[in-house]
């Protein structure tokens, strides 16, 4: 067995997955090859560290945490929505806003009628127009 073949089989050898004859060949090669023996030691170390990490358990409340995260995230439900609803919804909101602004401007226009435009009989009743506050305070 050469070094390339031996190193290719090292993982399976470490896990005890090699058939008897190949296993013996790997063992014999490792006894006489310092480079492959070093590679074997590194493979073992790598497997041990990885196995240690694989044993680590997640937070026991992880499922609850995930479901809470889903609830609290301000996402829309992943329910299928018809395409026209996706377009219609923002259109309705925009139109409503525009209508509200227009109504506001219209009402503001009515309220903002100056005294000049008042009918004469109403203007007579408007004390403030006849005599201003500043004139009264000067007396």
């Amino acid at each position: 067995m050469n070094c390339q073949l031996c190193q290719k089989e090292l993982d399976a050898y470490c896990q005890g997955n090699l058939p008897g004859n190949i296993r013996t060949q790997v063992e014999n090669h490792l006894k006489g090859c310092e480079s492959c023996a070093s590679a074997f030691a590194q493979t073992q170390l790598l497997n041990r560290v990885i196995n240690e990490e694989r044993e680590i358990q997640s937070n026991p409340f992880l499922v609850t945490r995930i479901m809470e995260g889903i609830e609290s995230s301000s996402v829309e439900r992943p329910v299928h929505q018809p395409v026209f609803m996706k377009v219609l919804r923002p259109a309705i909101i925009t139109t409503s806003l525009a209508a509200a602004v227009f109504a506001g401007v219209l009402l503001g226009g009515f309220a903002n009628t100056s005294p000049d435009r008042m009918p004469a009989e109403l203007a007579m009743m408007d004390d403030m127009a006849i005599e201003s506050v500043s004139m009264l305070s000067n007396e």
């Binding site: 990490e53 995230s73 992943p78």
Partner: peptide
């Protein structure tokens, strides 16, 4: 954990993965 080698980061990432999966379901 294979990428971050740390329990807390792996917990956070797992949560992130499932939230992302839910949003893209």
């Amino acid at each position: 954990i294979g990428f971050v080698h740390n329990k807390e980061d792996a917990d956070d990432l797992t949560q992130e993965v499932f939230i992302q999966a839910f949003q893209s379901l």
